[in-house]
Simulated scan of single mutants.
Amino acid sequence: MSHIYQPLMIRSLVEADGTATIRQLAHAFIIQDESQLKYYEDRIKKMPLRILKKNGVIDRQGDLVALKTGKLTFEQRAQIKMLCDQKMQEFIVKRGLSIWDYRLLDTPVSGSVYYEAMKESGGRCALCGATKDERPLDLDHIIPRSKGGKSTKDNLQVLCSRCNRTKGNKDDTDFRKLKQIDSLPGCKFCFTEINPAIVVEEHNSVFAILDKYPVSEGHHLIIPKRHVADWFTMTTQERREGEELIRVLKKRIEIADKTITGFNVGMNTGESAGQTIFHAHIHLIPRRDGDTPHPRGGVRGAIPEKMDYGD
């Protein structure tokens, strides 16, 4: 970043007539930091904009945000600004710098420690297994800095930008202890073993194929790319993205086939539950009126005599 920081500092000093405080220079750096601008754009969309719009205070048209108060007088603007400043200052007095604990770096990570941590990670997120080709990789403090965690290699793990942003500062899980297996040679459902021609759809950490022995026409399997035994050992991200892909496929199947009137969604976990391929997979089975004489009970048919449970 020296290619940016050094000329930016010189330009900022020139614009300030040759002299500026560190604080003034920091303001200039923030304005030029696209990652910070993107971060706050995202924060604005997720919280204050959504809440204020819901309460009828503001309106949004694309990237344009406006108060719904109509034209304000000079006195009204002054009073509103005073009340907003009062609310902010009251909270700052109450909480102090702890408001920004999650943003403060007490000890920067040295280049050598950063390199070693990244090398040990194998270039993958310790939680979801994402690579740098899928999303940016961050160094995360296992014990958060706000809780006294140090910037040493034993307290650092690699998380992708998505996992790192959603990890709270009260969570001290060491995700490096989770065993990550990309693929298992000979596993029929490992992504590296699958013929790309049969892949119907991909969605980040999961993909879908048509079942080789379908229960009904349009029977799909949604499968994590990473080798993982069952639904319960899939990561939160894999389960979430699996559910997202199920919704996309359901809608697509319904549009293509108007005879579909229902769906069964489920997974077999363990040999006693009927699992035969021990790589997690979720069944999406379209149903049609009359495809079985007695559909009542649905998935309870896993044990046939329990399917009809009376009134």
Results as ranks from 00 to 15, higher is better:
145 R>V: 11
134 E>W: 07
141 H>G: 04
166 T>S: 14
162 R>Y: 11
147 K>M: 14
162 R>P: 00
138 D>K: 08
137 L>T: 01
125 C>L: 08
155 N>T: 06
146 S>G: 09
134 E>G: 00
142 I>D: 03
162 R>E: 13
134 E>R: 12
139 L>C: 04
148 G>P: 02
141 H>L: 05
135 R>N: 06
126 A>Y: 00
161 S>V: 14
149 G>I: 04
161 S>A: 15
147 K>I: 05
152 T>Y: 01
133 D>K: 14
154 D>V: 04
159 L>A: 12
149 G>D: 06
159 L>H: 07
164 N>I: 09
124 R>A: 02
154 D>K: 11
161 S>G: 01
151 S>E: 05
140 D>L: 02
128 C>K: 04
150 K>R: 15
134 E>N: 08
136 P>C: 08
136 P>E: 10
166 T>A: 12
146 S>T: 11
159 L>Q: 11
127 L>G: 00
163 C>R: 07
161 S>M: 08
158 V>T: 12
128 C>M: 08
142 I>R: 00
131 T>P: 09
127 L>T: 03
147 K>Q: 15
153 K>G: 04
163 C>D: 15
141 H>S: 05
161 S>W: 14
141 H>I: 06
129 G>Q: 03
162 R>F: 13
145 R>I: 10
157 Q>F: 07
151 S>L: 04
126 A>L: 03
136 P>T: 03
149 G>S: 05
151 S>I: 01
157 Q>R: 08
